[in-house]
Write a protein that binds this DNA or RNA. Structure first.
Lengths: 349, 349
DNA sequence: GCGTCAAGAGAAAAGGTTTTCTCAACGCCT
DNA sequence: AGGCGTTGAGAAAACCTTTTCTCTTGACGC
């Protein structure tokens, strides 16, 4: 073979073209080149287009590191999460990313797994990379991230996780969400509504239970004792067994603490030959589509609007980075009821 | 009130302490300070500790942007995915992160949603931020990302997604995984094994089906026609209905293309009063724990080892970044069978 | 014709770190 | 005493871009 082009095992790493290369190509100084490309400064139109043309031809791409160094702004934020499966943090991340991408801001995603060492490692890496801000997310509202973020010298926002004192946080309005669900059942004429939910150690369990009781009280209905268990389908099935044991009054609606429980309840009812929604209406929580749409019948459930929550968090972080003052405190964002077929149709529908 | 300390609405942004501050504090030049902190150069032990002490006291943290600019290495990689729910890309990401975090490398996660504009936006942002490399991930092996990554001048690795020509890719060994599943059923003495799987347009559907047929042929068993449908529980239930319609020979094992189908099959069988694993053994694919552990009985299924796959991808990217040559090509990583209770016990167990 | 002004472009500093080179001082050997 | 090697530390360049300041040149008004 001739000594012609050999195929490399890996694409050759060519030196990136710098502003200096562009300037030389166009026969001007780097200062002029910079101004030409940023539409700043004064120069003849001819000069400007000549420089821009050179940049285009050479494939010039400004070095963000140099820009960041100068602007003291990296256009980068870090996101911390302990939600391994991303069930909650991915929608939040999507919203954050949506809010930031048009400003050229990228997101470091770091899963810290409730491991303080790992958390410190990631936070240190972020800080050295001079992130403009940090967003802390969690899998549940009650579990704190394993690191103290309050003294970092960088804006921090909490999204869907328990904030430190005096922090800025966005969480879902769980009381409001529970209200939507229970009011929906009441409006459909259900009279004996029970609540099957997760473990008592979760704050949201109590928030939702309180709203459940409040709505029933307002409607003049009795509130049976809240049934707490795990966040699983099997607990849902077990709850259905308990509720429809031979003796005792049977409910005509079940408000579940998450979609998995609801799915378990629905499966349990079907196996007992109880019609959903005919005899019993069921509402879930989370709107986890993969569960909610595949249950039989498809599940009416509360959506926490996590994408909007993320978007809000992202936009607020941006304000903070721009130096605008933001009141600390917890902002509760409204939920939304997604009506499918597990409750029957609303009377006015 | 006196003009004492007022509480700020937001933590004050103090100027970060630089090497220069440390040097001044210790009464040396920045050059010396740098060497002291990096354990380089020569100086008296007293000088070195004095500088290190000053750095510690002042809370000095080197500016990664400046370091990156100099080293031409940002210690940052970008990850592109089109897997909105993170079902596949999050485990891959976990593996990547695991491989990189100890080298101080952080990961930009970008969801591009099959949108070329969004993809270009994110890729541009990455390139300007001078990522050391890019990892492309997809939700399925067959759907290509909506951008051409081959001419970026940056190392690119594909993980669990269809690579461009001459690229480096890590994918799961779907033939091998299917083999594990079917061989397991054969070993347990199942004789009529059917395969219920996803849509024909997926490459993996054909790969797994081929392995399924091969194993049956090797065992001298007949291979009924592969049943292709959607990746859903409802297709699994429908398939169960078809297979156990009154007439015709009934299978004694079902190999399913994913865990959701398997779950649908199991539910369908239970509703027909057919015992799993007594009468019929069922194997799934993906080891999606939330589905596999909550089905009744818990599902024996194929795990694609996505975390290891991510780890391999991350380590290979690191080699590439270090300039080590890597053969292009597709590497298939082995799967692993997770035995639960949907097939009965192996005879030797 | 001289002073004023604007336009167009470049020089230089800044941002924070690393690294190479230089320099001064000192001890030691012949 | 002169030369040499060693040790400790600093100066300066480099990385790449942006921005301010300065400078030159030509036009224009009086």
């Amino acid at each position: 073979m001739s000594d012609g082009m050999e195929r490399d095992v890996v694409a050759p790493r060519r030196r990136p073209v710098t502003l200096r290369d562009v300037a030389e190509d166009a026969g001007v100084s780097v200062a002029t080149a910079s101004k030409a490309l940023n539409d700043q400064g004064r120069m003849t139109a001819e000069t400007r287009t000549r420089i821009q043309e050179a940049a285009r031809r050479l494939g010039f791409r400004p070095n963000g590191l140099a820009q960041s160094l100068l602007r003291r702004r990296s256009f980068t934020v870090g996101m911390l999460t302990n939600d391994t499966y991303g069930r909650f943090s991915l929608p939040v991340m999507a919203g954050i990313s949506e809010a930031l991408v048009d400003n050229g801001v990228s997101v470091f995603l770091c899963n810290v797994e409730d491991d303080p060492r790992l958390g410190q490692l990631h936070v240190d890496a972020m800080l050295e990379k001079r992130v403009d801000g940090i967003i802390a997310t969690g899998k549940r509202l009650d579990r704190r991230l394993p690191i103290d973020l309050s003294k970092l010298g960088v804006p921090v926002i909490y999204a869907f996780t328990e904030p430190d004192a005096d922090a800025i946080a966005f969480v879902s309005d769980d009381e409001g969400g529970a209200r939507l669900a229970v009011e929906h059942l009441v409006r459909l004429g259900r009279r004996r509504i029970v609540h099957v939910t997760g473990p008592a150690r979760f704050a949201v369990v109590h928030q939702r239970a309180a709203a459940y009781r409040a709505v029933l009280a307002e409607a003049g209905l009795a509130a049976p004792a809240v049934m707490m268990g795990s966040w699983t389908e099997s607990w849902g099935r077990e709850a259905a067994d308990i509720l429809f044991a031979p003796q005792g009054e049977k409910p005509d609606a079940i408000f579940c603490g998450n979609d998995q429980i609801a799915r378990g309840v629905i499966d349990g009812l079907r196996e007992r030959g109880i019609d959903v929604p005919g005899a019993v209406g069921v509402v879930g929580f989370d709107n986890w589509e993969i569960v909610a749409t595949q249950s039989r019948p498809p599940l009416t459930t509360v959506d926490m609007n996590l994408v909007s929550l993320g978007r809000e968090a992202g936009m607020t972080l941006l304000s903070l980075v721009d130096g605008k003052p933001v009141e600390p405190g917890i902002r509760k964002l409204p939920c939304r009821l997604v009506v499918r077929q597990s409750c029957g149709r609303p009377p006015d529908g």
